[in-house]
Simulated assay, not measured.
Amino acid sequence: MTTVSNNPFQLDVREALRTTGLPQHLTTSGPAPQRLGGEMLGVAEGAPVEIIADVTNLGESLLVDATLHGTATGQCSRCLSPLEEPLELHVSDVFGLSPDFITRDAGKTGTDDGDGEDDFEPLFVEEDRADLTQLFVDEAGLTLPFNPTCADYGRECDEGTPEPDGISEEQAAAPDPRWAGLAEKFGTTDEGGEN
């Protein structure tokens, strides 16, 4: 089943709700409802994306296994060259069919170590739809580099771009002015030479 949607992240799961056991194959496409990724690299809001998903009815919940195909655009954080890279994100999660559905009993862990377990909120099917938006937003944040560079994608930065530590070759060759006094007192040392 293939559909074009104003929000491809919202899967129509009505058919899966009627059938248990066998997964329902869904494909949706349309504009991304919001940006995925950071400021330097991401799928822009409104950019075309395609979602391919398998939805399995587990009885009191649906297992959604989905892959997003799109294009991440942005710029290199070093040379500011434009980046345009194919992006594939995969998510898998369980959506409850009623408020009685519980996927994790944080109250019985016996510890409260501040790891966020107690803040967990299960996902639910609402109006016959499974909304994958937050799952893909989170996955993009974990997958895409915060400060992307050309090297991340097998390319070299434009000629003349400073080294990663911000020091150019000319700067590296110049003596450090903080040690000028010591250099005068003890003399300078050339490679292979004497003091």
Rank of each mutant, 00 (worst) to 15 (best):
T2A: 04
N6H: 14
N7R: 09
P8S: 08
D12S: 08
V13A: 13
R14K: 13
T20E: 05
T28K: 08
S29G: 09
A32P: 04
R35C: 05
G38W: 04
M40F: 07
E45T: 06
G46C: 02
G46W: 00
V55R: 04
V55A: 13
E60R: 13
L62D: 03
L63I: 05
L63R: 15
T67K: 12
L68H: 05
L68A: 05
H69A: 15
G70A: 12
T71Y: 04
T71K: 05
G74Q: 01
Q75T: 13
Q75G: 13
C76P: 15
S77R: 02
R78N: 09
P82I: 15
P82G: 11
L83F: 02
E88P: 01
S92L: 03
D93F: 10
F95V: 08
F95G: 03
L97H: 10
I102V: 00
I102W: 02
D105T: 02
G107Y: 01
D113H: 02
D115I: 08
P122M: 01
P122F: 05
D128G: 14
R129D: 07
T133V: 01
V137Q: 03
G141A: 04
F146R: 13
N147C: 11
N147M: 12
T149G: 15
C150I: 09
A151P: 14
A151Q: 10
D152V: 02
Y153L: 06
G154W: 13
R155N: 12
E156M: 06
C157V: 07
G160H: 11
E163M: 15
P164D: 01
P164A: 01
D165N: 14
E170H: 14
Q171A: 07
A173T: 10
R178E: 12
A183V: 09
E184M: 03
T188A: 10
D190T: 10
G193V: 14
N195C: 05
